[in-house]
Design a protein around this nucleic acid. Structure first.
Lengths: 192, 192
DNA sequence: CCCCCCATGTAACATGTTACATGATTGA
DNA sequence: TCAATCATGTAACATGTTACATGGGGGG
């Protein structure tokens, strides 16, 4: 699984797929929306855009329409679109789940405009499964923390486990919602 | 609020406070326990230890007891202990909550051996409060996502919000458990 | 004998942070 | 006129990643 870009680069690529944007537009998105997890500093955005351009994943066009200082507006190339699709549809591993689920949520969010519903369903199912596995891997540690001296460690671990449980529940609910939208056209007999 | 060390450095400092450890010991902790969120690579651990030593926060002693290659075992200095205490007792801000709660959980876990119960209670209360505020800041974005086209974005945001809710519930439950342990000796009249 | 574990570390590289620089336009 | 906003970027720095280097000891 060769990495096409950094997490920030992939986040940018997905935003550019929603609509063409300048570096400044991207900064505003990261600064003012719940995507603020990613950096909004110019020292991160502009180099990331340059790297994406060097790899041929995005292309920038100078927009001189306004009298303002010229904006450089970027859009994904075909290759960029393919890289984006590869990223969002990657199988979900336990490692993905362990290191912050933000990345996974971003993949899910961008999926809406990019792949069909079956692919989304597959993603959610594999996500739920990976979370279950991860929880099963954490639980043994709880047994080693039953002494009263270990109360802080135990509680911290419980917080983690519960947060994963909450995410697994979400994944299953989202799956139901996505699949309940319309019966899949190819298999009308399976409805309900 | 001057930063005494990087997140990895603070995690190391807390582990060394539990018991003196070598660089290799630390790697094993990060590689085999739920603390695996932090890096277990030698290229991160050894430089981090050197930085902590240069700042006078830890001191290393060569343990030549075994016939094996000499281990270098580190412990926190008094100054390191003070830095650790400053870190865990820092007030919890919305920003802390937004960028991964792992750091906060680590602070909570290390708190057990470091501060009294009142400080822990204060931490948990401010955590619950910061999470509530953060959720209140996220909810307005949901309103802008009621159209059916925005379903993926809406679901992703809901996942985030629910995960924060789950953490706020945990904080309040942990608070009850910590405060229920024993009545505080100084105020016997307040029991029950 | 060879490979894996113990245990230390270094070097090149990629990435992000902080702070600065530039300059035009818009509103108080 | 002064500050804020639009809009681009660079430079120095800190940190982490990946891969390599070293060398002894124990087990199959």
């Amino acid at each position: 699984m060769v990495r096409d870009a950094t997490p920030l680069g992939l986040a940018i690529l997905g935003l550019l797929h929603q609509e063409p944007r300048s570096g400044y537009d991207l900064r505003k998105v990261f600064a003012t929306t719940p995507m603020g997890y990613y950096s909004d500093s110019p020292g991160a955005i502009y180099p990331a855009l340059r790297r994406l351009e060097e790899k041929g994943l995005v292309r920038g066009r100078v927009d001189g329409s306004k009298a303002l200082r010229p904006r450089k507006v970027f859009s994904p190339t075909d290759e960029g679109l393919r890289a984006l699709e590869r990223w969002v549809t990657q199988p979900v591993t336990r490692d993905d789940v362990a290191r912050g689920t933000d990345d996974l949520m971003l993949r899910f969010a961008f999926m809406g405009q990019l792949v069909d519903r079956q692919t989304t369903s597959r993603f959610l199912r594999s996500l739920a499964h990976a979370i279950d596995e991860h929880i099963a891997g954490l639980e043994p540690y709880l047994d080693g923390m039953q002494e009263p001296e270990a109360i802080h460690g135990r509680l911290a671990l419980e917080a983690g486990i519960e947060s994963y449980r909450s995410e697994a529940r979400w994944a299953r609910r989202a799956l139901a919602e996505i699949e309940g939208l319309t019966p899949r056209p190819a298999q009308p007999g399976r409805t309900k």
